[in-house]
Design a protein around this nucleic acid. Structure first.
Lengths: 229, 229
DNA sequence: CGCGGCTTTGATGTTCATCAAGTAAAGTGG
DNA sequence: CCACTTTACTTGATGAACATCAAAGCCGCG
């Protein structure tokens, strides 16, 4: 007998599915999924594209962003696997409101949205679990947007460094996945001032900088700046 | 035979329910609901309160806000009925992350969250419809937060006036439901500068001001400022 | 009336974006 | 692999945008 070779063992989405779907349905999920590999810089989808698939980030790192009228970008979120972040509006819109691109090589698993909707409609427990996950994403984004908005420049830079350190990399030393300009687009500040603030932090011995590599030396001070600013 | 006098005829939530729930379940909904009337300024729930009910705004106007560490408020949303806005995180959290208070006299309908969850788990179509609605709310909030963040002071003031005019009141003349300070808390600016900008708009003949009453005279100019700023 | 909160306006200083010029780094084609 | 080009980064100088402070007017309410 030929086994259905479903490679989704590490897949959070399958974990959602497992507890509530019948095994046949899980197999269907695995059959219907398509996997794509995106290189660094690759566009996963663009603002305005029709939404056909439920997209799930298996590995890598992505940024979610929006183009503004004057040609620049506004970064909404940077997230790692198990965050479903590209799926914010899939249940309320026909077309994506945001673009998503890969910051590192990223594996994305696509499942036909129609099929997910069928599962939701046919299986309330699955629906409940999915709602919880989607709700959590939106919450996080809203909260972060407020967190950024209430801070001043140095508070924002400190906040975003702590975000990378604790939420993305779980380490005091990490390589920035984005350019200085992208940090600026993330925290709604100018590039020059982001760089300046990073330099100031370096001069004050709060961080060390080697190109993209950041080492947080005095995390308490950084937290203080983030809290006060 | 005594009729179950369910007064939810205008209730958007019942409309969601109607198409997918059996009539017995709709009656249950009506039985389980509790209705509360809040006066202007009344607190519907506070940040940190346990989430027990699905709360639905039947009439009135509310603000959703968060207290910051320095004692001030950050306003996240101002919404009218049929927006479910107090329900952002009810599926992902035990406790409210935001406070909600009434800006006008408001009727709020409470339904035990457990019962809603049962409905979701037992009825996928209902779940799908509810997901769509919840997703739409989160989307709106995220989008507005980005909209505000990318604008400068005068762009923000113009944006928020247009928001009240078109989204809340559907009229060029309306009474501001909030103080100048609250507008400032909404758009993350200082009170004095909000007032100054309103005065500037008045001097330039873009709006007329009588206390809380605003009349938008030159809506095209206001839109231009909102788009450019 | 008088008090307190909201509003308004001006003056002042801080914060921040913008511009410019230069350096480092990273692609690109020969 | 090197010269060339382009892009990212850095720093300083300048002015604009914005917050803060202060003083005064207004309005509702006890």
């Amino acid at each position: 007998m030929i086994e259905n070779n479903c490679e989704c063992t590490e897949c959070q989405f399958r974990n959602v599915a497992f507890s509530t779907l019948k095994s046949g349905q899980v197999n269907d999920l695995c059959t219907f999924r398509k996997e794509f590999l995106y290189q660094k810089g690759g566009i996963i989808h663009r603002e305005g594209d029709p939404i056909n698939d439920f997209k799930y980030l298996r590995s890598g790192l992505v940024k979610v962003f929006k183009s503004t009228s004057n040609g620049s970008e506004q970064i909404i979120a940077i997230t790692k696997p198990f965050d479903f972040v590209s799926n914010i509006s899939i249940f309320s819109e026909d077309r994506y409101k945001y673009s998503v691109s890969a910051l590192e090589e990223s594996e994305v698993c696509n499942i036909r949205l129609d099929y997910i909707k069928e599962l939701v409609a046919g299986n309330g427990k699955f629906a409940l679990e999915l709602m919880t996950k989607l709700s959590r994403i939106s919450d996080k984004i809203i909260l972060q947007s407020l967190d950024i908005r209430k801070r001043n420049l140095i508070g924002r830079v400190a906040y975003i460094l702590l975000y990378f350190s604790s939420d993305i990399y779980s380490s005091n030393v990490f390589d920035l996945p984005v350019s200085r300009k992208e940090i600026a687009d993330y925290i709604s500040m100018s590039t020059a001032n982001v760089i300046r603030t990073l330099s100031d932090f370096r001069k004050e011995g709060i961080i060390r900088l080697y190109g993209k590599t950041v080492e947080i030396v005095d995390i308490d001070k950084l937290k203080l700046i983030s809290a006060k600013g």
